[in-house]
Design a protein around this nucleic acid. Structure first.
Lengths: 156, 156
DNA sequence: GCGAACCTACTCGGATATGGGATGTCCGAGTTCTCGTGG
DNA sequence: CCACGAGAACTCGGACATCCCATATCCGAGTAGGTTCGC
């Protein structure tokens, strides 16, 4: 899985802690984790295309969350960065070669079905977890994080 | 996900239908789906390393299943081909940069935890499905498949 | 006829190329703020 | 003092390189079976 997913998830939390008043530039978000700024920008663009954040250009511009963290699931972010196609892609090799199983329209590839079942469980779990819940967990375990992040981004 | 997973899964079913008496070469298994033989061989090697199949060299050699299909889960095959490390790899970027969260040993990355939960659901589902069940589903939907495959591999 | 040694053909196994996508970088279009100027 | 316009700086957005892994290929080590030779 792409490394950008991790960056995007953390950045969404940071944007939430900073608050909706100020926009944060991709440069600042990257600096906070010592990551390449231009590449971080690329990930944020993907989030913007997916409607998770929205961007404002020019001085004082940057990125803001497009909706509350409770309305953003892990699935949303993963889809935005990784794309929407499934990990296991059935190429129907059973219909190639000499023993090609032709004809029967209702005859699905059972291997594909089984793999889809597993991937569906993954997606269901990702869709059930909102970033709001993750944020709450972090604040429960380390209460000083919100203030620290908010003040750091305010100072820069 | 690697394309080899699909090849490996289908090949395991084919090996089961051929039966344990005869060993099947990687060339034949590849020909059946019009796939590159050398690369198919590579996937079967991975299955052999994982103990799912075992190989015999020389004339009359090839691959056989190492155990019954009911004892082989989808997870086993996926692990053999793709490797055992998780798809989402937490690089702990939160501990980098100016706002590094130092100290607290019990303080885990909540994002990592959430992603692991989802991936665990995926692995659980893969581990619950055996290739024996998949084979049964195929035979229920298309009863002629076992005979066709068995005879094709017998003729070649 | 029978046994053994050799030889051939075949198969796996790992070392070796190649291509596409993830990773990383750069510059232009557009906007906002600031500063200067004129009324 | 205020309004306005030009300029500059800043930001995103997408186009352009680079690197690594999945894909694909090839050849050598080892083995089983057949063949031939000797007894």
């Amino acid at each position: 899985m792409s490394e950008g997913v991790e960056w995007a998830l953390h950045s969404c939390l940071n944007l939430a802690w900073v608050g909706p008043e100020r926009a944060v530039t991709s440069t600042r978000l990257a600096e906070y984790y010592q990551l390449p700024a231009a590449y971080m920008n690329k990930q944020l663009q993907a989030l913007a295309r997916a409607g998770i954040v929205y961007s404002t250009p020019g001085p004082g511009g940057g990125f803001r969350l497009a909706r509350a963290l409770d309305e953003i699931t892990l699935m949303d972010v993963v889809s935005a960065i990784e794309g929407r196609d499934e990990a296991f892609r059935c190429t129907e090799i059973r219909q190639r070669g000499p023993g090609a199983a032709r004809g029967a329209p209702g005859d699905l590839c059972q291997i594909d079905l089984a793999m889809r079942r597993a991937e569906l469980a993954w997606r269901r779990e990702l869709g059930a977890q909102t970033l709001g819940e993750v944020k709450a967990s972090v604040e429960r375990g380390t209460p000083e994080v919100p203030v620290r992040i908010r003040s750091w981004f305010a100072a820069h």
